[in-house]
C-alpha cells in the first residue's frame, strides 16, 4: 500500500509539535483522507495509552537501561579515541601473551619429584655447605643452607648402603659417635638432604654429594 505523504505528520500532530500552518493543513487533509484518519485514530489510541500508562513500557525487564554492551562501548568511547582504544587492545594482548608464556614456566618450578632408584630430582634444591670436599678426618657435623621456617630436613649418609638417617628442624646435624665410628678413612661416602613442609610434603631435595675420608 502506498503511503500518504501526510502520514509523517500524524505523530507531530498528536504530540502538538506541528507549526500552526502544518496543523491546519493536516487537519484539512484528514477530513478528506479516510486512510490518514484511520491511522490517526489508531495512533492516537496508542499514544494516549502510552501517556496514561507509561509503566507498561518500563517494566523491570524492559527498563530503560541501555544494553550493557552499548553502555560499555559508549563509556569506552568517552575515555578513548579509536587510536587509543587500538593501542590499549594491543597492550592488553601483549600482556596476555606474557602471562600465558610465563605461567606454565612458573608452574614447572613448583616441586615435582620422582624419587626412584635412578632418583630423578626436579624442583627446588638445597645447597649443601659441609662436607662437600674430601676430608682429612671423619666429619663431626653436616651443614646445609636453611630454606625457611617450619621446614623439616631429612639427612641420609651412605657408602654402599644407607649408613645413617635422621630428621631435624635445624640446618645442621652433629654426627653421633656410633655413626662416626662406622666411618673409616679411605672410604668414599655420600650424603643428601631432603626438606619437608609442615604438611609432610616434599618441597626440596639436595644433590647427593660425595666426599672421601682420606687416610692422611
Amino acid at each position: 500500500m502506498r503511503k500518504c505523504k501526510f502520514e509523517d505528520m500524524i505523530d507531530g500532530y498528536l504530540l502538538n509539535k506541528l507549526s500552526e500552518r502544518d496543523k491546519e493543513l493536516f487537519e484539512e487533509h484528514y477530513f478528506n483522507c479516510p486512510a490518514c484518519f484511520e491511522e490517526l485514530q489508531a495512533r492516537s489510541l496508542i499514544i494516549n495509552t502510552i501517556k496514561n500508562h507509561p509503566e507498561v513500557l518500563v517494566s523491570e525487564e524492559a527498563s530503560l537501561k541501555v544494553p550493557l554492551a552499548t553502555r560499555l562501548k559508549r563509556e569506552l568511547a568517552a575515555f578513548f579515541n579509536v587510536r587509543q582504544l587500538a593501542m590499549t587492545g594491543v597492550i592488553s594482548l601483549i600482556f596476555l601473551a606474557v602471562i600465558i608464556a610465563v605461567v606454565p614456566k612458573r608452574q614447572a618450578l613448583l616441586p615435582d619429584f620422582t624419587l626412584t632408584d635412578t632418583e630423578t630430582v626436579r624442583g627446588s634444591s638445597i645447597t649443601l655447605i659441609s662436607p662437600v670436599i674430601d676430608m682429612n678426618q671423619v666429619p663431626s657435623f653436616f651443614e646445609w643452607k636453611k630454606l625457611g621456617e617450619n621446614v623439616e630436613y631429612q639427612i641420609s649418609i651412605s657408602n654402599h648402603e644407607l649408613l645413617w638417617k635422621t630428621t631435624t628442624k635445624e640446618n645442621r646435624v652433629v654426627l653421633p659417635d656410633e655413626v662416626k665410628a662406622k666411618m673409616v678413612p679411605g672410604e668414599r661416602y655420600s650424603w643428601q638432604v631432603k626438606a619437608f613442609g609442615p604438611d609432610g610434603s616434599l618441597i626440596a631435595v639436595s644433590s647427593r654429594v660425595q666426599f672421601l675420608v682420606s687416610t692422611k
Binding site: D11, L15, I50, K51, L57, S59, A62, L64
Partner: peptide
C-alpha cells in the same frame, strides 16, 4: 524491550 524502549522515549 527494544520496541518498548523506543516507544517510551519517542512517545512518552
Amino acid at each position: 524491550p527494544k520496541y518498548r524502549n523506543a516507544l517510551y522515549l519517542y512517545y512518552y
